[in-house]
Design a protein around this nucleic acid. Structure first.
Lengths: 201, 201
DNA sequence: CGGAGGCCAGGACATTTGTCACCGCGGACC
DNA sequence: GGTCCGCGGTGACAAATGTCCTGGCCTCCG
């Protein structure tokens, strides 16, 4: 029996997946959570064989949870399940020690199959997405550039960002300028969008 | 037997919901689509009793599909199913003649129950969301202000927007300024975010 | 009919944003 | 040791953005 942890913030998706996976004769959902904090907590408690993690969750990223699980629970296989097939997400998932990476397109049947395959240690990755990740190249942004860009997405002014990150306004402008240059865009908004769609932030 | 049409762009969600709804003894999913165009097409062909529509779909909004169905297939009840419980969405759904409005939180069990209730003509709406929609008030933005704001979300410059909408740059700046004023924000980015989160665009 | 309000446009202006050149500091690497 | 690179900062500058005022055109409504 495969003991599985399910972390997914959208309630309907979570309960639907749990129901369907429990219908499989060799799979048992032993924990269900909607946040990364609970996911980590539950994983350490129930010690599942496979952790099925969403990326976008309200209190953080499933990618960070994957990295934490690799350190805390190395025997637990991690299967990332996400809405967005962003190249940078796949790259970060692999760096975080995930064994599989599935997008929420495609039918549910893929899911149970993927769970069984990651359990054997086999990597499960959409080939088209893998190609896209390789061709997109690595994340060109430095840590600070990421921070500044991330702080700019919701319309914050330079002064806001400077205050939030404890930097001078000049520095913030310089990082924004660098990020705009590296992403090949014309302003902070385009840069932030580009970085998002590539999974760089 | 309740004949149901399911329009939802996310493949895994769609197939999961179809499977679960088909498990209900009195519900049969007679059509499954991932776009609004196919949804309308299939609805006219199979004439379902209930249409379960997602809002965010790649080729348009489920809200527009709801309005089209009201005109073309008035006997078909519409149940909106969406990720985001935005007040403006609910308002527009009601104006488009939807009978129910469900967010994708909460367990799947709610779904079958909601389908049965809309079939009788009963309105199905989350009370908390209804209250939020009423307290938020109507959309304060004029048509043009919406257009301009919508064109600005992805980082377009004033010149871009003017070209795309066949307006002068001065006009675009004026509309943006008006939108910023009405949303009580400081710049176009914040204004666009506010408009999004309220379902105004 | 008059007024209100949406739409479109122009000008003037202050502010913000984006760019560039240049500075020092410190860690990493050869 | 030197060199490279990321980090943090400054000053100056051009361009873009946001604001306010003016005007005209149209439609809808009292």
């Amino acid at each position: 029996m495969i003991r599985l942890l399910l972390a997914e913030d959208q309630g309907m998706m979570r309960s639907a997946l749990a129901l369907l996976l429990n219908l499989e004769p060799d799979i048992e959902v032993v924990a269900e959570t909607g946040t990364t904090a609970e996911a980590l907590d539950a994983a350490l408690r129930v010690r599942p064989d496979v952790a099925l993690l969403d990326i976008e969750m309200p209190d953080g990223s499933g990618l960070d949870t994957a990295a934490a699980l690799r350190d805390e629970l190395p025997d637990c296989r991690v299967l990332i399940l996400t809405t967005f097939g962003r190249p940078g997400y796949l790259r970060r998932a692999m760096e975080a020690g995930a064994t599989g990476f599935l997008v929420k397109d495609g039918p549910v049947e893929e899911l149970a199959a993927a769970v069984r395959r990651v359990l054997t240690g086999e990597r499960v990755i959409d080939p088209a997405l893998a190609a896209a990740a390789l061709s997109a190249g690595p994340n060109p942004l430095s840590d600070r550039e990421r921070d500044v860009l991330h702080a700019a997405v919701d319309g914050a002014t330079v002064a806001d960002i400077a205050g939030r990150l404890h930097l001078s306004e000049s520095t913030v402008r310089n990082y924004l300028s660098a990020a705009i240059g590296k992403t090949g865009t014309r302003n902070r908004i385009e840069a932030a969008h580009r970085a998002r769609s590539n999974g760089w932030i």
